[in-house]
Every structure is written in structure tokens, then in C-alpha cells.
């Protein structure tokens, strides 16, 4: 899908109008951002916004996140283990200390 985020009042207003007029192409709206369908018309709307508001509009192409393909097994395992921790108030790094799970710092430095 095409994620459009606006960074000025006028760009936000244009996006709002676009969303109102082209509901069929708008997959989801979030205030100053919207997800557009990945059709030529979605691209047309994104191009128009970019044409009109230049860098006040950010357009990203999104795809579903498949954790089994996109994230290392160690990361998945860490998430699973942490979400079934006994004490809900334990911060992640304290939880991971002394285990095989990666530290949050290590994960921050690791590009996907």
C-alpha cells in the first residue's frame, strides 16, 4: 500500500479532501496520514499530493511484515518469551540479561 504522511496544515487539508473524494482508494485514514490502495489511481493521488506539497508530503510503499521471513529467529523467540514473562513489570533488558535473548541495544544496531 502507499502510506502518505503530511507535514503542513495545507498538505493535511489536501489529503483530507482527497480522502473524502476518493474513499474507494483510501484503505485507512489516520488524521494527517492515510494508506492508499496500491493501484495506479492510488499512485496518481500520491503523485498529485507530492506535486502540490513537495517535501511536506512523505510517501512510502508498504508491504505486510512477515516475521518468519523478515526477522531473525532470535528476535522472534525473544518477543515470544518476553510476552509470556511471569512478571509484567520486568523491563525487557532485565528480562534478557543472562539468557540467550539479544539485548535491545544489539537489536537496535541490527538492520533487518
Amino acid at each position: 500500500m502507499l502510506l502518505v504522511v503530511t507535514y503542513s496544515r495545507s498538505a493535511r487539508e489536501t489529503l483530507r479532501n482527497v480522502c473524502r473524494t476518493h474513499e474507494e482508494t483510501v484503505v485507512r485514514r489516520f488524521g494527517r496520514a492515510a494508506l492508499l490502495a496500491e493501484t495506479e489511481f492510488g499512485a496518481f493521488l500520491a503523485c498529485r499530493l507530492r506535486e502540490k506539497h513537495a517535501a511536506d508530503v512523505q510517501v512510502e510503499r508498504t508491504e505486510p511484515f512477515n516475521e518468519f521471513a523478515d526477522a531473525p529467529a532470535s528476535v522472534r523467540a525473544a518477543a515470544t518469551a518476553y510476552e509470556s514473562r511471569d512478571s509484567p513489570s520486568t523491563p525487557y533488558d532485565k528480562f534478557a540479561a543472562g539468557t540467550d535473548h539479544p539485548s535491545s541495544a544489539a537489536m537496535r544496531d541490527g538492520d533487518l
Binding site: Y7, S8, R9, R12, R32, A55, D56, Q58
Partner: peptide
């Protein structure tokens, strides 16, 4: 670079809202 510049755009938009 553009991603970093968006922080200042973000700040400007907050100011625009404040002005309104």
C-alpha cells in the same frame, strides 16, 4: 536527510496549528 528534516516540518506544523 529528508527523514531528519521532517522533524522540523513536524515542529512547524505544530506551530501552524497553534497559530490557527
Amino acid at each position: 536527510e529528508a527523514r531528519r528534516a521532517r522533524d522540523s516540518r513536524e515542529a512547524r506544523m505544530r506551530l501552524e496549528d497553534r497559530a490557527a
